[in-house]
């Protein structure tokens, strides 16, 4: 059998062995954040042993389904904790579009994001992009750099936004103007119009519209 198809079959087998289904058997949304957190836990445990003292761990993440905006906060938290513990996240996305979550994960942790064009040559893609350790990657040419989509999701409705409102205290992102931050509870002053501004002078404008990008 061709190695690439063998790999795909193994991945499918893995998927069958650990089905991601609810109690009634209905398919659940992919749990990217859960997967990342679990991998980080394993790595943390492994880092305590003597053997892995000098190793630089990496996570390779395969994903087929599209991003779940609902997971945005937990995925970002997983990414940041990976960043803190010096773990690189490599991402291989095999869905139709491109995954903004995985792009950001790879970008922020110094990993590699890749979307194979030809799935039948998957093995060669994996060999080319992910086999090298982080130090060796510094010497090798990377595959054509793709623009990273830094789109954030709002904290209130979990939908991806281009422009939004940011809490000046906890940096939470909202898609609409709110009176009170839902995350940290800060009360925002109402937006001032131009005339009011002139009247009251340059007061710090909490809750003012700031592009999130």
């Amino acid at each position: 059998m061709l190695p690439s198809s063998m790999m795909l079959q193994r991945l499918k087998e893995l998927n069958r062995k650990h089905p991601n289904r609810g109690k009634g058997g209905e398919p659940l949304a992919p749990a990217l954040s859960g997967a990342l957190s679990r991998a980080l836990c394993f790595l943390h445990k492994a880092s305590k042993t003597r053997l892995s003292r000098n190793s630089r761990p990496r996570i390779l993440c395969f994903m087929v389904s599209p991003d779940q905006p609902a997971e945005y906060v937990s995925v970002m938290n997983a990414i940041f904790s990976a960043q803190r513990s010096n773990v690189s996240i490599d991402a291989c996305y095999m869905g139709k579009e491109s995954s903004s979550f995985l792009q950001q994960a790879a970008h922020l942790t110094g990993g590699t994001y890749m979307k194979p064009e030809l799935q039948s040559a998957l093995l060669q893609y994996l060999n080319m992009a992910f086999a090298a350790d982080t130090a060796t990657r510094g010497f090798l040419t990377e595959n054509a750099g793709q623009a990273v989509n830094f789109k954030a999701s709002c904290f209130c409705h979990r939908k991806p936004i281009d422009l939004g409102f940011v809490c000046s205290v906890c940096l939470a992102v909202f898609c609409q103007n709110v009176k009170e931050c839902q995350i940290c509870g800060t009360h925002f002053m109402p937006l001032l119009t131009k005339t009011q501004k002139r009247d009251e002078g340059a007061t710090a404008a909490q809750g003012s519209a700031l592009p999130s990008k």
Partner: peptide, 9 residues
């Protein structure tokens, strides 16, 4: 390391 990557590729 680099030679190993070449062999793999």
């Amino acid at each position: 390391p680099v030679a190993k990557q070449y062999a793999l590729r």
